[in-house]
Design a binder for these strands. Sequence first.
DNA 1: GCAGTGATCATA
DNA 2: ATGATCACTGCC
Length: 182
Amino acid sequence: MMPDLSRSSQPLPRAFFARPADRVARDLLGARLVVRTTDGSVARHVVFETEAYLGAHDLACHGSKGQTKRNAVMFGPAGHWYVYLCYGMHWMLNIVTGAEGVPAAVLIRGAGAFVGPGRVTRGLGINKAFDGRAAARSTGLWLEAGEPVGLRRISRTPRIGVGYAGVWAEKPLRFVVDPAAL
DNA sequence: GCAGTGATCATA
DNA sequence: ATGATCACTGCC
């Protein structure tokens, strides 16, 4: 059983991420994405939108095409950042989940004032430099537990931009905090 | 509605 | 070496 982390301001531990991606994606709603800026201060942004990429069997998941240089960190231990460039301009920020060897991750699509995965990274100054780093204070980018979000406040929809993935495009693996229920 | 943008990967 | 693809965004 997971310890109660809701009042902690510690980085979420690896055990939190070493679970199925859909479960982590749901539980990250309400969590804080924390970034240390150049002057040493930290900024916290409440995560409100995520997507789960489940592993090799999930045709929308990069890991389903086998391991490559780009996606190698997805195959590694949970709790590390997977950052890649999309459409030549947008950095996508993911946290690796699940067991080592299983290429699964959660995409952070919205946090704080930043709506959309490319805007999150642009707003926080996240780029390739974070790829493969642990989500930890030492990296300057980590996640902390926030106020728990009740299941009733959470909407699930298909993932965005994965129409190529056949039946996997329809699975409700995008998680959003419903603002109307807050 | 669609152009921009460039790393990545498969193919050769 | 070349060409297709792409977990998006901003402006039309």
